[in-house]
Write a protein that binds this DNA or RNA. Structure first.
Length: 394
RNA sequence: GGUGGGGUGGCCGAGUGGCUAAUGGCAGCAGACUGUAAAUCUGCCGGGCUUCGCCCUACGAAGGUUCGAAUCCUUCCCCCACCA
């Protein structure tokens, strides 16, 4: 369980298979984000048909609503949401970054003022592990401290060191709960025919590398993390949080080669289509990003002919698909002119259809990249793809 | 016919002497969004130009008072309510 096997490589790029309790994830892979236990606007069947192999949930948000006790009582996140494939829960660490102003960080953990009802909630490494065990995803993420992209060396170092100290506490609590569960004989899958009252005892914990845009800190973060291993996967956090793209590429180039080859690498919160290709080329195996669904709801679509703002007046009578190169359910059936109408009329179908297209667009990028790695053509494919994609950018 | 109320930029609607090319909202146009406080947010939105500025035309119409009017006065046109 939790094995990762590499099937082929081209340069730093890899194609592999990640075995998880509820299924296998072929990499490189994009993971749609379902913060509240749903990929916004989309039916799980649609997400599955689009080719998603694994989706995310969020510890902070699901803790606030409906509460992990509810999810556990409902048989765990897989059964609750009916998503039959692997899941990963983010730890709430990103909310330390995104909810600045609503939280206070201390060594013990983070105090959040709930954006829902104003109540004060504390999330600690231990609490995050407890919540994530109750949610029952295949992969739990360590509770980390994300700092903004432009952070000083001193500030980034503080967040990185704290993330390492928190990692010790995460691992300790995560293992303790796993041991308890095994003792209780709760080893069944979260997807057993009759769902267990408690989720699977099989859940793995992945650490997160921090260190901002400072190479020395990134490498120290990795060293400290590896010293606390072994791990079944390693995540790179704190990128695409305001720093220029070349900086992110440089960090990946310095950091990824130092990560043991046999471990899957997960670049958190990234990205846009070009970020996936650039990341894969630098050895990243897993990605997640809210942009596909958020941009989709906002009427912005990725296509091989450039970004399309669906609402634009010029699309009023366009009978063409949103993206003629796309094989998604939206492009197979609907005209761009109709999609524009749906947005202008504020019909929710429009939000759904463009979200679905964007999700498919990213999944397809990973599928094409994977195929190119498997047949050895990745270097050329990625070069051509990037040139074609950027060729249409303004 | 009488009395009262009202006519403001595509629409709704503030504004009752200078800070008003005129608050807001809607509609329209464009842009942003990267481990989701986002079906959100930002900019433009009378016309023209050499667009961090200048010049036209503007608050039903015409005329007037005033240094200065969407705002005050006169006449006219139109709308609404009630009374005959």
């Amino acid at each position: 369980m939790f094995e990762y096997s590499i099937e082929a490589t081209v340069g730093a790029a890899r194609a592999g298979a990640l075995v998880l309790p509820t299924g296998v994830v072929r990499t490189p892979a994009f993971m749609p984000v379902g913060t509240h236990g749903a990929v916004r606007g989309l039916h799980p069947a649609e997400v599955e048909r689009a080719g998603a192999q694994i989706v995310l949930g969020n510890t902070y948000h699901l803790h606030l609503r409906p509460g992990e006790d509810v999810v556990r009582a409902m048989g765990g996140l897989h059964r609750f949401t009916t998503w039959p494939r692997p899941m990963l829960t983010d730890s709430g660490g990103f909310q330390v970054f995104s909810l600045q102003g609503l939280r206070k960080v201390t060594e013990e953990g983070v105090e959040f003022v709930s954006h829902i009802d104003g109540s004060v909630r504390q999330l600690t490494p231990e609490k995050s592990m407890e919540v994530q065990w109750a949610l029952g995803a295949d992969i739990a993420m360590a509770f980390d401290h994300v700092v903004p992209g432009g952070s000083t060396h001193e500030h980034a170092e503080e967040g990185m060191e704290r993330t390492l100290r928190w990692l010790d506490r995460c691992r300790e609590r995560h293992e303790a709960i796993a041991t308890d569960r095994r003792a209780d004989g709760q080893t069944g899958s979260a997807l057993s025919a009759r769902p267990p009252v408690h989720p699977s005892a099989r859940q793995t914990l992945w650490p997160i590398i921090q260190g901002g845009t400072h190479e020395d800190l990134r490498l120290r973060s990795l060293d400290g993390t590896l010293a606390r291993g072994p791990w079944t996967g390693i995540a790179i956090g704190g990128l695409s949080v305001g720093e220029p793209k070349p900086v992110m590429h440089r960090i990946l180039e310095d950091l990824v080669p130092a990560i043991p080859a046999e471990v899957p690498r997960y670049l958190m919160g990234v990205g846009f289509p070009e970020d996936l290709v650039e990341g894969i080329a630098r050895g990243v195996d897993l990605f997640d990003c809210v942009a596909a669904t958020r941009n989709g709801r906002h009427g912005s679509a990725w296509t091989m002919s450039g970004r399309v703002n669906v609402r634009n007046a010029g699309n009023r009578t366009s009978d063409a698909p949103l993206d003629p190169d796309c094989d998604c359910e939206t492009c197979a059936r609907f005209s761009l002119g109709y999609l524009r109408h749906l947005f202008v009329a504020q019909e929710m179908l429009g939000l759904r259809l463009v979200s679905l297209h964007n999700i498919r667009f990213l999944l397809r990028v990973t599928e094409l990249a994977r195929a190119a790695i498997l047949d050895g053509s990745f270097a050329r494919w990625s070069h051509d793809w990037l040139r074609r994609y950027h060729g249409h950018e303004a």
